[in-house]
Amino acid sequence: MRERPGSTVCDHCGAEQDDQDAEQDAEQDAATGTDTGAAADPPPADPGRRRDRDEQGRARNARPRDGLGRPLPYGSEGVARQPEGVARAPEASLSEAQRLLDAGMPFHAHEVLEDAWKAAPEAERELWRGLAQLAVGLTHAARGNATGGTALLVRGAAAIAPYTATAPYGIDVGGLTAWARELTDRLGGAPSGRAGGPVPAAGTAPRLRRP
């Protein structure tokens, strides 16, 4: 993990989380090397509040989040996050991730693809990690973070490019790398930093597999 003021950024998938989320998920991050949070101003610390945990007792922040994965105040009505650690066949992971992308929820698609990455055989790990990075790149772009979106799109495209010839599971590697380049060029015309205008998440979503 690498630190930024007010947030923690995963070196593997590029997702950001606020400081409170980082503390809440420290045990899980230490075990997996990943996180699925989003940058935001953390709420005031409550030393009396116990660490949030999921149904299996693992550290997992319970703050509600919006459709792009940004934390909302406790008690707000948010969009449910994807269940963590779900075992899916590769085709099922792609179908679920596509459904979420089409619904304008690339952050949630990234969570599905991250599960696939963690479960993938060694020969496919970079493929699934690259797909998760592309989803995070679109998440950043949809939030208006042109710099973060560009960085993740470039990383994701580079990770999946070696699979162009084999195209496992019908993944449209060539189409996805072309999509990432086009979106990167589009973001390059936006102001640097987090001030770039957001792109429409659903309208900008790529197709993961060939027709």
Rank of each mutant, 00 (worst) to 15 (best):
residue 1 M to K: 08
residue 1 M to R: 10
residue 2 R to H: 15
residue 2 R to S: 11
residue 2 R to D: 14
residue 4 R to K: 13
residue 5 P to R: 13
residue 6 G to D: 13
residue 7 S to G: 08
residue 7 S to M: 15
residue 9 V to L: 14
residue 10 C to D: 13
residue 13 C to Y: 11
residue 14 G to T: 04
residue 18 D to I: 05
residue 18 D to L: 05
residue 19 D to R: 14
residue 20 Q to P: 00
residue 21 D to F: 09
residue 22 A to K: 09
residue 26 A to Q: 13
residue 27 E to C: 07
residue 31 A to W: 03
residue 32 T to A: 09
residue 33 G to M: 11
residue 33 G to R: 13
residue 34 T to I: 03
residue 34 T to F: 06
residue 34 T to K: 02
residue 35 D to Q: 01
residue 35 D to F: 00
residue 35 D to I: 00
residue 37 G to H: 06
residue 38 A to H: 14
residue 40 A to P: 00
residue 41 D to W: 03
residue 42 P to V: 05
residue 43 P to W: 12
residue 43 P to K: 12
residue 46 D to R: 10
residue 48 G to F: 06
residue 49 R to S: 04
residue 55 E to K: 04
residue 55 E to V: 00
residue 57 G to M: 12
residue 57 G to I: 02
residue 62 A to V: 00
residue 64 P to I: 05
residue 64 P to Y: 08
residue 65 R to M: 08
residue 66 D to A: 10
residue 67 G to N: 11
residue 68 L to T: 04
residue 68 L to I: 07
residue 70 R to A: 12
residue 71 P to T: 05
residue 72 L to T: 09
residue 73 P to I: 05
residue 77 E to P: 00
residue 77 E to K: 09
residue 79 V to S: 09
residue 81 R to E: 12
residue 83 P to Q: 11
residue 84 E to Y: 08
residue 84 E to C: 03
residue 84 E to L: 08
residue 85 G to N: 12
residue 86 V to E: 15
residue 89 A to Q: 14
residue 89 A to R: 14
residue 93 S to G: 05
residue 93 S to V: 02
residue 94 L to G: 12
residue 94 L to C: 13
residue 95 S to Q: 15
residue 96 E to M: 04
residue 100 L to S: 02
residue 102 D to R: 13
residue 103 A to Q: 10
residue 103 A to G: 10
residue 107 F to E: 08
residue 107 F to W: 14
residue 108 H to N: 03
residue 111 E to A: 07
residue 112 V to P: 05
residue 112 V to A: 08
residue 113 L to K: 04
residue 114 E to K: 05
residue 117 W to M: 00
residue 118 K to E: 10
residue 118 K to T: 01
residue 119 A to Y: 01
residue 123 A to Y: 04
residue 123 A to R: 15
residue 124 E to C: 05
residue 129 R to W: 02
residue 131 L to I: 03
residue 131 L to P: 01
residue 133 Q to F: 02
residue 134 L to V: 04
residue 135 A to V: 06
residue 136 V to A: 06
residue 136 V to W: 01
residue 137 G to D: 06
residue 137 G to M: 03
residue 138 L to T: 02
residue 139 T to Y: 07
residue 139 T to H: 07
residue 140 H to C: 08
residue 142 A to N: 01
residue 143 R to Y: 05
residue 145 N to Y: 09
residue 145 N to Q: 12
residue 146 A to C: 09
residue 148 G to E: 14
residue 153 L to Y: 06
residue 155 R to M: 10
residue 156 G to I: 03
residue 158 A to N: 14
residue 160 I to K: 03
residue 160 I to M: 04
residue 165 A to C: 01
residue 167 A to I: 03
residue 169 Y to M: 12
residue 171 I to T: 12
residue 171 I to R: 10
residue 171 I to H: 11
residue 174 G to T: 10
residue 175 G to F: 07
residue 176 L to D: 10
residue 178 A to L: 13
residue 179 W to H: 14
residue 179 W to V: 01
residue 180 A to C: 01
residue 182 E to F: 09
residue 182 E to C: 07
residue 184 T to P: 00
residue 185 D to M: 01
residue 188 G to E: 11
residue 194 R to F: 06
residue 195 A to S: 13
residue 196 G to A: 00
residue 197 G to D: 10
residue 200 P to D: 15
residue 200 P to W: 11
residue 202 A to W: 08
residue 204 T to M: 06
residue 205 A to V: 04
residue 206 P to E: 12
residue 209 R to W: 04
